[in-house]
Design a protein around this nucleic acid. Structure first.
Lengths: 207, 207
DNA sequence: AATTTTAAACAAACTAGTTGGTACAATAAA
DNA sequence: TTTATTGTACCAACTAGTTTGTTTAAAATT
């Protein structure tokens, strides 16, 4: 057996992610990655067959962590299963709390890749879409539970309401970065929580 | 008089913008631009001293059109000046109508540049931030007019509520592109309109 | 006559990816 | 217990092609 390559691989992934947020993917050269990690070209191509294999590994890791956080928030609010609106609001609150700890603008690889789509293979781009659809499915379930006990105060399309959470995340990331101040995601998730709160009122049960 | 260079310059700007949305800025080569426009390298560098001068021109044109549309919507709703909530809702409605006409996902240069910030000079990035702050200022005015006659049903921070419109635009662009379907911006602006509608109720005037 | 555009060659720096070889750690054979 | 073997992890130098940007002289447009 040889030595353990995981620390090197992890370092490549961590530094590459940071570089992609600064330069974009095609704006990030492998030489830059070597400089930051202190490894050599041979080592890089030992771990990743091509630059695009790195892109795939990056998005897979990012999406795995994203869905992990989503499921953690789901678990944490399981005790509110019988109070679906409270659960939905608390689910959002979990992310408000999470983003309150962030100082610098948070960046999202989905948006980064989405704005230079030609640089990635179909599989990589599909992985982003599928992860977003996982969010949609989860939000749809939470919302449908609410709709059993509450009526929307205005007419809404459930699917687009389900997508609205991801929309606000992505939008808040862009605006936070563009304004170069602190991360504003928590602030905008609060508006989402407000919207959910105002949107649903107890059902008038007829009998 | 010499010949008119504007058609060539405009063609460079139009094709470059499309290419930047496909490849990102650093993923777009000048050779690609020449191929699409059918002009030569000499002509390109006659109009733009550097690749970065093109980036600046692109964002200036994009921001000018953006603010133009914003001001058009402001003008169109001026007749509702005495009904500030109706005006705010109609202001958003103008963009819902506008985005309903779009089929393919709409792209935003602000987000594109924001996700590869190191590629651009400070001036270019500041122009994006300033344009977003113009949106903030406008929205703040519209919202403050509403607050004179209406009380928010839940506590909100005005500045972040003002930013929320741009957040939803940017987020909807990202999600629309990532899901590779039709543009979803109109759908999400409807949620913003709903939120404003639910957030404000007539003031209980004490007198 | 002034401005715009072409064509083609050129340079210097940078690009992703390859090559041949080395250091290392665990294991198996003597 | 020493020695040979094996496969992983890594390195330095190299290749072939692309990048932005320059130059120059001629030609086209108004």
């Amino acid at each position: 057996m040889g030595r353990d390559g995981r620390p090197t691989r992890d370092k490549i992934l961590a530094e590459s992610k940071a570089l992609v947020f600064e330069n974009g993917f095609s704006g990030t050269s492998i030489d830059q990655i070597l400089e930051r990690t202190g490894i050599t070209k041979g080592a890089f191509f030992y771990h990743f067959k091509t630059k695009n294999a790195l892109a795939r590994a990056l998005i897979e890791e990012f999406a795995r962590e994203d869905i992990f956080h989503m499921n953690e928030a789901l678990k944490k609010t399981e005790n509110l299963k019988e109070k679906p609106l409270e659960r939905l609001l608390q689910f959002i609150q979990e992310f408000i709390d999470m983003m309150c700890e962030v100082e610098d603008p948070y960046s999202c690889l989905y948006a980064s890749y989405t704005y230079e789509p030609s640089q990635f293979d179909e599989e990589t781009l599909n992985h982003i879409a599928e992860t977003m659809l996982t969010w949609r499915t989860t939000m749809e379930l939470l919302i449908k539970d609410v709709l059993e006990k509450y009526d929307p105060t205005v007419d809404v399309d459930i699917k687009s309401l389900a997508d609205h959470t991801v929309v606000i995340f992505e939008g808040a990331f862009v605006v936070s970065k563009a304004l170069k101040g602190r991360d504003l995601t928590a602030d905008h998730l609060k508006h989402l929580r407000n919207y959910f709160q105002l949107l649903f009122k107890p059902k008038k049960t007829t009998g």
